[in-house]
Design a protein around this nucleic acid. Sequence first.
DNA 1: TAGAATCCCTCTAGCAACTATAGAGTCAAG
DNA 2: CTTGACTCTATAGTTGCTAGAGGGATTCTA
Lengths: 140, 140
Amino acid sequence: MSYRIGEAAGLAGCKVETVRYYEQMGLLPTPARSGGNFRLYSQSQVEQLSFIRHCRSLDMSLDNIRELLRFREMPGKSCAGINQLIDEHIGSIECRMNALEQLRQQLRDLRSQCSGEQSIGSCQILHGLSACGCHSAEVS
Amino acid sequence: MSYRIGEAAGLAGCKVETVRYYEQMGLLPTPARSGGNFRLYSQSQVEQLSFIRHCRSLDMSLDNIRELLRFREMPGKSCAGINQLIDEHIGSIECRMNALEQLRQQLRDLRSQCSGEQSIGSCQILHGLSACGCHSAEVS
DNA sequence: TAGAATCCCTCTAGCAACTATAGAGTCAAG
DNA sequence: CTTGACTCTATAGTTGCTAGAGGGATTCTA
């Protein structure tokens, strides 16, 4: 039993172009081809695609996913590396959350300086944006 | 008094390339040039650059910044639009925060399924990632 | 069996907001 | 007059796709 690219994409919940892109990026093996040069995916290849999509839905980078796929190929080894990768990913998400939290506070402060009923010339938001608020946090 | 691009960038806290990029994107006016074809920025142009950088530090898009710059050019009008823009930006940040919050919870759940002392073959994290967790939240 | 609809192919360019390089020119100090 | 710091343009890379052109394959319907 094999699947054409559209079926595989449908099963994994992504677009056809995305599947081809993953192949190009080395996340999926080069699939078999039909007589008419259509890609043919096996069950396990479709599962690998679903794995990738699931990781992506957790916002992992393709590099991280590549690493996880490599782990999958050595089932005998310790899974400490997998745990570390997940921990680091959680860390990076918390980092982004903190940055966004700060950002929101800054924006609220700014916003509180104007009711929206001034003229632009006297709007304290614009003045606040002109002032030097050097070197703030970044959102990665 | 005028500034060369390196000075302007230094004052605004960004790289020289970024200044040229903003010019190309239409966020900065085409500056005067010296005899040797170097860009020369006026005080007010440096201030505009700082304004842009301050907005960027609040994670506003260049499109939003362009809009704010347009507002600045009509000081007599109402500033309601500025307030709306900021409110929408705060909304989009809160949206991202919510998505990240959900993501973190999902990753914590996944992580809790393994102590990191298993073999890869029996690691529940990998199994969790293979399972169908269809159609989750996106982080914009 | 013909034609239409739907799928698939490759290749290339675009998005956002820069960053980095190559290869060249300008300018001030020693 | 040479060194070094600065600047110029033009182009390509980053991430994870998405969209399009211009064609071929397959399948459904009349």
